[in-house]
Write a protein that binds this DNA or RNA. Structure first.
Length: 733
DNA sequence: GTTAGGG
DNA sequence: CCCTAAC
């Protein structure tokens, strides 16, 4: 063992498995059909939409829905176009990120940079718009607008937000609202841009807008930079005053197209800027009514950030639409990457301790939303309608299709636009509507699986390596994942609350909403952060990269053996999760290698698989439901731990588990005295059965012999004790 | 909060 | 590992 350990290689597999499937949730069960892929840009654009139909639904229901979605996808992977999109996205994203980000890369993985870019761009653009105050009206223009949105995909959320938000500024001419979700890698921004007139120069417009934004709305720009990402959560939307002009918002993709300059700026902006406070306000207030930015953790850059060209395209359609008023909205989300912050976050957010640090970071993200609240009612209704009919497209567009095409989207969007109109148009009516259907639409782009750390002997075969990886993945996924809902950086634990009660309503800041995959049992993982965050609206999940992702999964693996690694990783991003785990593991002894084995190979999962798995579990949870508390992850005892346990028991005897814990496992936080007691119980059982019947990592016979010896000894002692105390009774009996 | 045991 | 009874 020892030798192997020394030689063991540690592989850190960062699997950020990005489960990029897009999930559509609709409580109603409406799924939006996926659309065919479009171009790359489209992909980018694509975003998820998730809908929560009822605000009233309980948080639990929400979770369940998510889980279901996952399951469905799992079941019908092939069918869904989404996947393909996702893949594309991924690939796409990565590429983009790399390209675009070159600068950034270092910092963040791809996504982050991308996001930033997007944001920046977005911001810039948005700002300008903002100045101009555009509000798109839902009504007629709405349609056009919608299209835009749809196109962008971002819309999903943005739509909600945007639509809502836009109260009505009409612009002349044709305005289109494009909502873009830029997800840099991680984030999306949804910006809605209104283009007047036509798409004529959308590009130009954009550019100009951007510029304007920067210049025009200094605030925004400034804000961005300044703002703390952190705050983003609130996501306020500044509402634009009225508009003026054009508003554009673009979220661009970080990736390619954006000009370098943008990027650079973007970074700043994003990072700094997105505070709710700072950014949003200024920018929003100025021009952008609704700025909704979605940031996606994942990589989903796609959506938003398309290449300029793409963007252009998207916008154009919009323009084409009609000349309506132009309204803009920007939704911006900000994330911040809080790489660092993780700690804090963790502490904060997670009650259980499970929460992922990342999440906390998210807090930062929060979106700023704003107007959404306003819009909601009708919009939602509309959405539904749309969804049912076209809308699906619409929604979906957001998710999946997106990028591709705005075009398609547009059509969809139209519907949406209609919605928008409605909202705006009939504010009064809205209220009524609301009550009926207020649905919260959510889009989850993806869930990520955090890094996996694997330790394996150098002498191990490739096959064993593969298996080990699988095991690790399995452990993570199979360990049980649950979906955590994070609102404003805080984990929402009460499943019985309705979305409305919780503050998740179409009106509200969806941006502040996040979803995370959490290990069921696991102790440590911070829920929130976890993997994916969904931000509904705006999603900004900025940083997901860094930290987030994954925590849960990762954790397991880390657990035992890799404290060091863990630490490092954590720093990187993962770490947070791990914390507890590794803590625990090491102390006693560590054993490094073993664990891998322990994780069984139950599953061999590929990331995608993981998705499915994940999905599944959630479901279960759902059933279980209330039990938020999840079963801790299974952490097989390593030989070293067994050794330590045996030694302690030999000395202290059975029946003093607390002392055993303190003596031998004090540092193993994940090993409770009950665990030790249970382990001893199983060891005794194991020692008594034939080797063939034993499962799991083999325990040296020598230890098993000691177990039996010690067990016999202490049992005898215990008996003696009893006799002493109650000699007669015993004797008599 | 610990133990002991069943599940 | 969880859950619970019993202490």
């Amino acid at each position: 063992m020892e030798v192997t350990e020394l030689a063991s290689l540690r592989l850190s597999i960062e699997t950020n498995m990005v489960l990029q499937k897009r999930l559509y949730y609709s409580f109603n069960g409406n799924q939006v059909p996926t659309k065919p892929r479009a171009t790359r840009s489209a992909r980018r654009n694509s975003t998820f939409q998730r809908r929560l139909e009822d605000n009233q639904m309980c948080a639990f229901d929400l979770l369940a829905t998510v889980a279901d979605t996952l399951l469905q996808e799992k079941q019908n992977p092939a069918t869904s176009s989404d996947r393909s999109l996702e893949k594309d996205r991924d690939g796409f994203v990565k590429q983009e990120c790399q390209d675009a980000n070159k600068p950034f890369k270092t910092e963040l993985s791809d996504e982050a940079s991308c996001d930033r870019r997007c944001q920046q761009e977005f911001v810039k653009e948005g700002c300008p718009d903002a100045n101009k105050p555009l509000k798109a009206e839902l009504s007629d223009e709405g349609s056009s607008d919608r299209k835009c949105f749809s196109n962008i995909s971002y819309q999903v959320y943005s739509q909600n937000c945007c639509l809502k938000e836009f109260p009505h500024h009409e612009m002349d001419g044709h305005s289109c609202i494009a909502s873009i979700t830029s997800s840099g890698c991680s984030e999306k921004f949804v910006a809605e841009t209104l283009v007047d007139g036509n798409g004529q120069n959308e590009m130009e417009n954009l550019a100009s807008k951007v510029e304007l934004g920067s210049s025009g709305s200094p605030d925004s720009s400034g804000c961005k930079l300044d703002g703390d990402v952190n705050k983003v959560k609130d996501g306020k939307f500044g509402k634009v005053p009225d508009d003026t002009g054009t508003g554009l918002c673009c979220s661009e993709d970080p990736l390619d197209e954006k000009p370098p300059a943008l990027i650079s700026s973007c970074d700043n902006a994003k990072l700094s800027g997105y505070d709710d406070n700072s950014m949003p306000h200024s920018s929003l207030s100025k021009g952008c009514d609704n700025v909704v930015v979605d940031s996606r953790d994942d990589d989903e850059n796609f959506s938003g950030c398309a290449h300029p060209g793409t963007k252009m395209k998207s916008f154009r359609p919009i323009t084409c639409i009609d000349g309506r008023k132009i309204k803009k909205r920007l939704a911006t989300k900000y994330h911040k990457v809080a790489q660092e912050s993780t700690h804090d976050k963790l502490s904060n957010s997670v009650l259980d301790g499970n929460l992922m640090p990342v999440y906390s970071s998210r807090k930062n993200y929060y979106k700023s939303q704003r107007s959404q609240m306003n819009i909601p009612f009708k919009k939602r209704k509309l959405f539904k309608c749309n969804s049912d009919t076209n809308s699906t497209g619409y929604i979906r567009n957001g998710d999946a299709y997106y990028s591709p095409k705005i075009e398609a989207n547009q059509s969809v969007s139209c519907s949406s636009s209609g919605m928008g109109k409605d909202h705006e148009t009939s504010s009064l009516g809205q209220s009524a509507l609301r009550s009926r259907d207020s649905h919260v639409k959510l889009r989850i782009k993806s869930f990520r699986v955090p890094e996996l750390f694997i330790e394996i002997p150098e002498t191990a075969t490739i096959g064993s390596l593969k298996r080990t990886v699988m095991e690790a993945v399995t452990a993570v996924l199979g360990g049980g994942l649950r979906v955590g809902v994070i609102l404003h950086g805080k984990k929402v634990r009460d499943d019985s609350k309705t979305l409305l009660q919780t503050g998740i309503s179409h009106d509200n800041h969806l941006d502040a909403l996040g979803f995370a995959l959490e290990p069921n049992s696991s102790q440590n993982i911070p829920p929130a952060c976890a993997t994916s965050s969904l931000r509904i609206p705006s999603a900004n999940m900025p940083q997901p990269f860094i930290g987030y992702p994954s925590s849960p999964a990762v954790i397991h693996q880390r657990i035992q053996g890799f404290p060091n690694m863990l630490a490092e990783h954590q720093a990187t991003g993962l770490g947070n999760l791990v914390e507890s785990d590794h803590d625990s593991a090491p102390s006693p002894i560590n054993t490094s290698g073993e664990k891998k084995l322990s994780y069984s190979k139950e599953l061999i999962t590929v990331p995608e698989m993981g998705m499915e798995v994940l999905a599944v579990q959630p479901v279960h949870q759902k059933s279980k439901r209330t039990e938020i508390a999840q079963r801790r992850i299974r952490r097989p005892f390593s030989v070293a731990e067994v050794e330590a346990l045996v030694q302690a028991v030999e000395k202290l005897g059975t029946g003093r588990w607390r002392d055993v814990k303190l003596r031998a496992f004090e540092n193993a936080k994940h090993r409770t005295y009950v665990d030790l007691k249970d382990k001893w119980k199983t060891l005794v059982h194991t020692a008594r059965i034939s080797p063939q019947q034993r499962r799991g990592e083999p325990v040296p016979q020598e230890l098993l012999d000691r177990v039996l010896t010690a067990h016999a000894y202490w049992s005898q002692q215990q008996t003696k004790q009893q006799l002493k105390h109650h000699p007669k009774p015993c004797l008599l009996l």
